[in-house]
Each structure stands twice: as C-alpha cells, then as structure tokens.
Amino acid sequence: MRKKIAVPLGVAAVGLAGLGYAAGVEVNFYRLRRFELPVLEPGSDPIRILQVSDIHMVPGQRRKQKWLRSLAELEPDLVVNTGDNLSHPDAVGPVLDALEPLLRVPGVFVFGSNDYYQATKLNPAKYLRRGDLSHAPRKKREQNDWQLLEAGLAKHGWLQLNNARGALELGGRRFAFVGLDDPHVKRDRYELVAGGPDIDAEITLGVTHAPYLRALDAFAADGIPVILAGHTHGGQLCIPGYGALVTNCDLDTDRVKGLNTHTAPNERTSYLHVSAGCGTSRFAPVRFACPPEASLLTLVPRH
C-alpha cells in the first residue's frame, strides 16, 4: 500500500517543483538571442535590429523593466516592437518607462490583441487546438488605453505600422517597412499595404504581431525579403528535447521561434524571424524550457 501511495506523491512532487521553476525562475530568466541575415547588397555596412515582443507588462514587474532598459546598451541601429506590450490596463506607464532608453533609437511598432483588449482569464485547453485560431472578438471586450500607448511610442519618432507602410533614414540609408495589424483578431488588411518592396530603400522589412500563414504568404508573395513577428511565446511551455506543442496560430511548431524561412504559394521565399517574447499573460505567468527573450538581428551583405 505504501508503494502505491508513494508513486503518485512522487509524481505530484515533481509536478509542483516544475511549476515552481516555471513560475518563479524561468519566467524571469531573460536572455538575448543573436542572428545574422545575409540580405543586404554586397559591400553594405551591417545594420543591427533589436526586436522586442510580447512584453505583457504588469505594474510592479521591476526586473522585467530593468532588463528592457538595459537592452539600450546594445546600441542597436533600429528597434522593432512586434506587439502585445500590455497585460494590465494600468501598464501603459510602466511599458513606456521600460522602453524609454530604446525610444531614443529609431523604431517601428505594430500592436497585438493584448494592446487593444484587456487580458482575461484563460482556458488552457484552447491552446491545444491547432490550425487557424484567428477571429474577431465575439463579444464586447474591455479595452486598454491603446491610444495612450500609441501616442507615447509615436511622440519619440517610432513609426506605427498597423496596416501601414513607412520608411526611416538610418545614418543616411533608407529602410522601408510594410506592417500589418494583428492577424490573431483579424485586424490585418494586406490589401492596404500591398505593392512589394520600396524601390528607393536599401531593404524593406515586413512587420506583424501574429505569424499566421495568410500574413506570411502575403509578405513573401509580395517580395518582402524579411518578416518579423512575435505572438507565439515560443510555445511558452515546451518539452525538453522535443520543443513546443503549440504556436497559438496556424504556424507549424518547427518555426515557433527563431530564424527560419517562409515560401509563398508563388514560390517566393522570405526570411522569417519569430520572437518568443519576454512576457506572458498575467493569468498564465509561467514558462518552461522556453526562456523570455529579445533578439538582436544583424543584417549583413549577401554572400
């Protein structure tokens, strides 16, 4: 009888220890990932892009704020924010404070659903579903003060790219952007930004929050050479040696985070970088085998 009792107690103890690690340790184990993308013309000087995503800020997260502020020490040429900055209606101020040193650097941003709508309690079972999970809100949801967040980012010169195109001069070099509003809540309207790369720019980057296949297909088919996205949290709860179980969209789990490629139906191929992000919903503050992150992407000349 004692042996029968000991087995489930042992399993429970391991489970509790894993939950404690996921909630109390790894969720604060911030890291920087580095990638090189050979996409510039031969002879071009490299450009360093810092991508931050899925901050999901809650007031009082001082460790996260301090880490975000420290990223300015990397001295990037450009910052790309791929959305879901908020996980609490009172977090606009803390987000802007955390990003303040980076706001001195040229930047662009798109929003995710959690920037628009207040976070709600989650049904974990829905994340086990695969396929296209995108849908407009089916009922009225309380909104965050996303206009205040947008104004706070834009007043420093960051470009808002929600279904918009834009360009920045970086050291005398023109870099262009094609952005989509969040496909996860069906706010994406690629027809408003279609037209391919900016012919006067050194390179054109595609920016979106959620890497749904329809968005990736549109960017790649249009000849956009680099696509940056977030949303997936890298799977958030992963199995060591196996990886992510879900992506929270219709992207395959093999590309849940990091640098990959995407080929559109017309056989055009783009680089795709998906950030695992540095936060979680305040109602699911755990990470396992998937530390919070930001990425430093160095664009270099083609070989």
Rank of each mutant, 00 (worst) to 15 (best):
G243Y: 08
A229Q: 10
T120M: 06
A294G: 14
H135W: 08
A125W: 13
G235W: 03
L103Y: 13
E191P: 01
R287K: 09
R165F: 03
E150P: 00
H88P: 07
K66L: 09
K126D: 14
L296H: 09
A244S: 12
G131M: 06
G277N: 06
R174W: 07
F219Q: 04
F35R: 11
G107I: 01
G235F: 03
P89M: 00
V92F: 08
N163A: 03
A220H: 07
D217C: 01
F219N: 04
T269F: 11
K64E: 13
V7P: 11
V11R: 00
S270T: 08
R282S: 12
A151W: 05
S70P: 07
A294M: 05
G112T: 04
V58W: 15
W158F: 04
D254L: 06
D200A: 06
G83N: 04
L102W: 10
L205K: 07
L40M: 05
D217R: 03
F109L: 00
K66I: 09
T247A: 14
V95S: 08
D182W: 05
C249T: 11
T204V: 00
L161G: 03
A136C: 01
A17F: 15
I239W: 10
A276H: 05
E41D: 13
K139F: 15
H231G: 08
L299Y: 13
L149I: 02
L159G: 05
L74K: 03
L103R: 15
H262N: 07
I199T: 15
D45A: 13
L122C: 01
G15D: 10
A22Q: 13
L296I: 04
T298W: 06
E100M: 09
F288K: 00
V274T: 14
N266C: 08
R130I: 04
Y117D: 13
K64I: 07
R165Y: 10
H233A: 03
H233R: 03
F29W: 14
A13G: 15
L16V: 13
I49F: 09
T247L: 06
A91L: 05
T263H: 12
T261Q: 14
I49Q: 10
P59I: 02
K121F: 12
G166A: 02
D77M: 00
H88R: 03
L102N: 09
G60A: 08
H273N: 07
S270L: 07
K4G: 08
I239V: 14
V58N: 14
T280F: 03
S44Q: 08
F175T: 01
N266E: 13
K140H: 14
G172F: 02
H184I: 01
R62F: 14
N85S: 15
R214V: 02
A151F: 02
Q61F: 14
H56N: 15
S44D: 13
E41Q: 10
L16N: 11
N144W: 10
A218R: 12
A125E: 14
P94M: 00
L99A: 06
R255P: 12
L148H: 10
S70W: 10
Y116D: 07
G43D: 15
R173A: 02
E26A: 02
G258Y: 13
D115A: 01
A125H: 10
V300H: 08
E75I: 00
H88D: 15
